[in-house]
Structure formats: C-alpha cells, structure tokens
C-alpha cells in the first residue's frame, strides 16, 4: 500500500483509500498554485503600493482602477475571462510568442490568481504604509537617508509587521479560493475530489476533502501566529 492510501485505510473509507493518491497529488497542485501566485503577487503588490502612494498622479489613478476592478469582481469570473476569453485570441498570442503560456490551464490559473491577489495585497500594504506616522519618513530624510533608502529601511519593515496579519488572511483566502481552478480542468485538491465523487457518487469524499483543507488552513494559521509573535517580540504592543 502506498502512503497516500493510508488515511483512507485508517478511517475505513474505501472511496478515500481508492482516491487518496489522486487527492494528495491534487493537494500538491493546490500548494503550487497558491505558493507561486501569492509570492509573485506579493512582489507585484509592493511595487503597486509604493507607486500608488508616491508615484505620479496618472500612475495612482491607474493602480486605483486596477485594485478596484480586481477586488470588485469574482475570482471565478476573472479566471474564465483569462482562460476562455484570452484563449479566444490565439492568433495574437501566437504572433507575440505567448501562446505556450495561455495554452496551459495551470499558467492561466497562476496568472489570474497572481493579478487577483496582487490587487488585494497592494491594498493591504498601502493601508499599512499609510498608518506609519509621516514623521518617520521626514525623520529618515532629515538623517540624510535617501528617499528610497528611507522607504526600504524605515517604512517598509514597519509596514510589513502591521500588514502581517491581513497578509496571512489573504494567504488563507487564496488557498480556499484556489478551488475554482478545478473548473478549468485542473486536478487540484478540489478537482481530484470532484473526479472521485463523479465516479463513486459517495458524498463522504467531499467531507474528507473539507478536512484536508481545514487542516492545511489551521496549520498555516498557527505557523503565522508564531511568526507574528516572533517578529513583534521587540515591540511593547502586547
């Protein structure tokens, strides 16, 4: 018996045992999807948040429009727009040499999740940066630090700590939201579960999937709490 069949074997569930391996490889795809898109989204969000606060007027409005648009519409709809909608323009993508990217459902999902989470993370970071007193920036400038240096060494580190909790929540939201990837043919945890259900018609398989998601989310929540505790131990906040 392979390791991935054990949970089903131990819980005495035949269907969980039969489809356990598929579900755990689905879990790995869920993990990849979320890890890649949240990391890329974060990198994008830092740039967006800074440009939104300190950039030229036109950049501010563009970024504002971007965050409003992606935070105001459902992820499912965005995913379908990218997967089916952008797929419609195959000839164009072939001309610009990007069709290999939009051809694959996995890349489409990563792309959509990245631009979606970047919009949310940018708003979180903007709020965090804004709540750092302006005097800090001025103080850093007065000490002779360059604009960028003050941002990098003074403002951002503090904003990161303030944003830690909402960013953790965003990570959890993405794990749950990634289940919609199953609707564009990806066999993530949700997709593998739907397959198992479609073949066995055994509802309990959904409960096992729910349990796996729950454990995953709880682990991340606990780890994040510890992380926050560690990073803020020098502060007299609590």
């Amino acid at each position: 018996m392979r390791w991935c069949e054990y949970p089903g074997y131990l819980t005495g569930s035949e269907v969980f045992q039969n489809y356990g391996c598929r579900m755990f490889s689905g879990l790995w795809i869920t993990f990849e999807l979320v890890a890649i898109s949240v990391t890329l989204g974060f990198a994008l969000a830092i740039g967006l948040a800074i440009a939104r606060l300190y950039g030229p007027r036109w950049a501010q409005s563009v970024i504002n429009g971007y965050t409003t648009f992606f935070r105001g519409t459902p992820l499912l709809c965005q995913l379908f727009l990218v997967y089916y909608g952008l797929g419609q323009f195959r000839l164009f993508w072939q001309d610009v040499g990007l069709w290999w990217f939009f051809r694959e459902p996995f890349y489409c999902a990563v792309f959509t999740f990245t631009i979606n989470t970047a919009a949310y993370q940018a708003e979180i970071l903007r709020g965090a940066i804004q709540s750092i007193p302006r005097g800090q920036f001025e103080g850093a400038l007065a000490l002779g630090l360059h604009r960028w240096a003050s941002l990098r060494h003074v403002i951002i580190p503090q904003a990161m700590i303030l944003g830690l909790r909402p960013l953790g929540n965003e990570l959890i939201v993405m794990i749950k939201a990634s289940a919609v990837a199953s609707l564009v043919t990806l066999f993530d945890l949700m997709g593998a579960t739907r397959l198992a259900f479609a073949r066995s018609f055994d509802l309990s398989i959904y409960l096992y999937a729910a349990l796996i998601y729950l454990v995953l989310v709880e682990i991340i929540r606990r780890v994040w709490d510890r992380l926050e505790l560690r990073l803020t131990r020098h502060m007299a906040l609590r």
């Binding site: 797929g87 195959r90 069709w99 694959e104 043919t185 397959l195």
Partner: peptide, 30 residues
Amino acid sequence: ANFLEKFYKDSNPRLYPTQEEANLDLINGR
C-alpha cells in the same frame, strides 16, 4: 472521461464541465 482514464494514462487528459467547453478549447488550440 472514464475511457481516457483507463486507456490513455500517458496522455494529458483534460476534463471539462460541459462538452461545449471542450469543443471551444479544441478550436482555441488548447
């Protein structure tokens, strides 16, 4: 879908919610 799963393990099977969406992706070249 079951047929693909049983005999075409080394291919890259893609399962769609409706037949029409699969057709669309064939047109699109996916």
